[in-house]
Structure formats: C-alpha cells, structure tokens
C-alpha cells in the first residue's frame, strides 16, 4: 500500500484515530508520519515509565488502579514529606522525594527485586561525608555488643575498657559534629 500522504513511498505505519466513536484510519510512510508529528529523537511516546508502571502494578493484592477510587482500601500509604500517594507512585513509577523510600518501605523489596534482577540492597559506593558517620555508627554498635557480652560473663574489667573506647569514639564524633 502506498502512503496516503505522498502517494510515493510504501506505507509502513497505520494511524487509527477514534473521535466521538467514529474511527478513521490513515496509512503513512515513515517520512510523512515524521512530518506530521515532528518529535525529538529517541522520544517515542511509549516510555520506560509506562512499562514500569505495568510492572509495579503486578502486585495482585492490589485492585487495578481504576478501582482504587471506588473502594479506597484501608488507609492508603503516602509520603509524609511530599504527599505522594502509593498509587500515584505506581502510576508514574517515580518517587516524589527521598522520603518516599521510607514511606513505601514495606512494599519496596518485591518491586526492587523485580527491576534489579533479584537485588534489593545497595552494595556500591558510600559517599565520603555520610560514609564517615555510617562507619562510626557501625563501630559503636559493634563495641556495644562486645561490652554486653563481657557484662553477661561478668568480666567487668574488660567491659570497662570497651566502655571507655565507646566514650572516646562518641566524643570524637561530637567534636567533628561541632566543627561542621
């Protein structure tokens, strides 16, 4: 079939328009189709967000999006900071702010696993500034566990040494905090 616009090239695309229940069809070649709806390169209308939204919505315990408005099941999850609702997150497949991750935490593991080949925990880079504090926190937690162990075994001298170590670490952090 020839393109209905230029009548020169072969039609490779079919456009179906439905206006007020009346259906019209147009056969165009790629060239004329582009001419009629000039788009930026790579910006096809069907984006990864459409695909993803379908994936996020696979959760079978949830009714399809359209029904949510009629039923309003329980209290819907929403982010306290940016007010994004969970269903809006599913629909756009985008978080509204960094606090959404906490707000939707209970639902995230299966979603992230689906998107990231079974993974749901970060193993990569730790930013330097935040990283320092994290490491500190981990060290203190470890030492506290050790101290409890000595106390339970009534090895109080050992426990006292650890206690001083913890105090020194905490003092160090407070000093750092004061400088910021």
């Amino acid at each position: 079939m020839l393109c209905q616009h230029c009548n020169e090239r072969k039609a490779t695309l079919r456009f179906t328009k439905i206006v007020n229940g009346k259906k019209t069809e147009k056969h165009l070649c790629e060239h004329c189709a582009k001419e009629q709806g000039e788009a930026l390169p790579g910006n096809n209308n069907y984006s990864i967000h459409d695909l993803l939204s379908g994936m996020l919505n696979l959760d079978s315990s949830n009714p399809p999006l359209g029904q949510i408005h009629f039923k309003k099941p329980k209290a819907e999850l929403s982010c306290p900071k940016c007010k994004l609702s969970y269903s809006a997150f599913v629909q756009n497949s985008r978080f509204g702010c960094s606090h959404c991750y906490q707000a939707f935490e209970e639902k995230l593991d299966p979603i992230l696993k689906r998107v990231h080949g079974g993974n749901h925990v970060h193993r990569g880079k730790i930013p330097k500034r935040i990283g320092g504090k994290l490491e500190h926190k981990r060290k203190v937690t470890k030492l506290k566990e050790k101290m409890q162990f000595y106390i339970q075994n009534e090895e109080f001298e050992e426990a006292a040494i650890i206690r001083d170590e913890i105090r020194a670490l905490q003092r160090e952090q407070n000093d750092e905090g004061g400088n910021e």
Binding site: H116, V121, I130
Partner: peptide, 21 residues
C-alpha cells in the same frame, strides 16, 4: 546527597536506585 544505607543513592525512578550508574 539523598543516600540511604540500605538502598544507596536515592533516585526518582526505581530503575536507577543504588549506584545510580
């Protein structure tokens, strides 16, 4: 930066979270 110990670098789309790489 928006960073979480468990999820890594937080991004708008769940497909980029973690390393953001």
């Amino acid at each position: 930066y928006a960073y979480d110990e468990k999820r890594g670098y937080l991004t708008s789309c769940p497909t980029n979270v973690g390393t953001g790489l």
